[in-house]
Amino acid sequence: MKVKNIVLFFENGTTFKFVDVKNYVNKENLIEFSYFSQSESVEKSAKFDKSKLLGFSVNF
């Protein structure tokens, strides 16, 4: 599934924003996706354990 962007919120107040997200998969305990790294100008993939997140926002 393609989404526009994802923001992850962590308990320590840190937020991570990912843009141009592709291949979004929301599993029971895991979020997986690929995204375009603006700082490195390459496509990357990411996996996050949901138990480590305070919350997340997805824009379709």
Rank of each mutant, 00 (worst) to 15 (best):
F48M: 06
N29W: 12
S39A: 15
N12I: 06
N29S: 12
S39R: 15
S57Q: 10
F9Q: 03
F48K: 04
S45C: 08
K44W: 01
F9L: 06
Q38S: 15
S37Y: 13
K27A: 10
N59S: 08
D49I: 13
K27N: 05
D49F: 13
K27W: 12
V42H: 06
V3T: 05
E40Y: 15
T15N: 02
K4S: 12
N26E: 14
Y24W: 11
F10S: 03
N12Q: 04
N26R: 15
S45W: 09
E11G: 06
T14F: 06
E43G: 08
K50T: 06
E40T: 14
E43R: 14
F10V: 05
S41L: 13
Y35K: 09
V7T: 06
E28N: 13
K17M: 08
T15F: 01
V21A: 09
T14L: 07
N5T: 12
F18M: 09
D20E: 15
N29A: 09
F10D: 02
K52W: 07
I6R: 01
I31T: 03
G55Q: 10
K47S: 07
A46S: 05
K50L: 14
L30A: 02
G55N: 11
F36K: 06
N59C: 09
E43Q: 13
I6W: 01
S41F: 12
K44R: 14
V7F: 06
K47V: 03
F18C: 07
I6C: 04
V21E: 02
V25P: 05
V3A: 04
F48I: 08
K27H: 11
V3F: 03
N29R: 14
L30V: 06
D20T: 13
S34R: 01
N59E: 07
E43I: 12
A46I: 02
T15H: 02
S37R: 13
F18P: 04
E11S: 09
K44S: 00
D20R: 15
E28D: 14
K47P: 00
F16S: 04
S34H: 00
S51I: 11
L30F: 02
V19Q: 11
E28G: 12
E32H: 10
T15R: 05
T14A: 06
V58L: 07
